[in-house]
Design a protein around this nucleic acid. Sequence first.
DNA 1: TGTTATGTTGCCAT
DNA 2: TATGGCAACATAAC
Length: 306
Amino acid sequence: MPELPEVETVRRSLLDAVVGRLIVNVVPRSFPGVMGPEGVDAVAPRLVGRRIKAIRRRGKYLLFGLDDGTDLMVHLRMTGSLVLTDRDQPPLRFEHLAIELDGGRDLRFSDQRKFGRVLHLLPGASQALDRRIGPEPLDAGFTADRLAAALANRRGKLKAVLLDQGLVAGLGNIYVDEALFHARLHPERPAGGLSPTETRRLHRAIRAVLRQGIANRGTTFSSFQDGYGAAGGNQATLNVYGRGRKGEPCPRCGRSLLLTTVAGRSTHFCGRCQPLVAPSLDAPAGPSGEAAIGSSPAGVDESPSR
DNA sequence: TGTTATGTTGCCAT
DNA sequence: TATGGCAACATAAC
């Protein structure tokens, strides 16, 4: 579920109602381990009485900046959700934690699969996290040249490398497949073997699919919801993700989409538009370069970004 | 009814 | 160091 656009959607949805609020209580529910080995009972006293000054995002991590300089870090992993509710609401299904705020509302963390975590980070730990994660793909500092440098000398498959959070922050299975489709790159191309033009195309595609995901308030494939429980709308714009299993037609060329496994993850792509072998420079443009993409996100075009 | 797949990440072995 | 495989968990779909 939650990749960069989904986490950003949660962040934006909570900003107005949460920033400035005081944590008045922290209540364990069904899974105290959600706050790590210490458990909720050990961590809660450090949080009660703290005021939330900001909510920021780093990759797929949400960081609630507290007034003592520490951070409350939330990672949704596969099925986590963070929802603001009135205090008198009954616990959500799979609710593991309720953070009670002044003003009468709670931040409720729930997670069917118990992979997600809500951790209290001292400043050193937040800095370590920041250093461990790669650049933010939507920041101005993430240039095509920087992507090229990161990919150089990587021998793994393109998809596997893009999923590495140390290389670029925030990409997951859905947006990688979508970005590779827009860039017309086969997921199993060696990551270090892209031409400069291909790298620029990939750079542009990554930013475009992420921006589109945010604009549509996230992709709800099954369980994603924003801070008020609302589903996203980006699933309607997906070109390949989830479409390979039944061989649905490629939106660009019409050929049946394919499903395979790369880096242990389901991988959807078009075998014609995303060839495994890089097309030679002097070959005439094949079918992959011809048709316009009906649902192409703004900003994806066919020309190099000069 | 059993088997399989699921959006993430960390740990382990190579 | 980089890379690949798998477990963590609960449920839905086949």
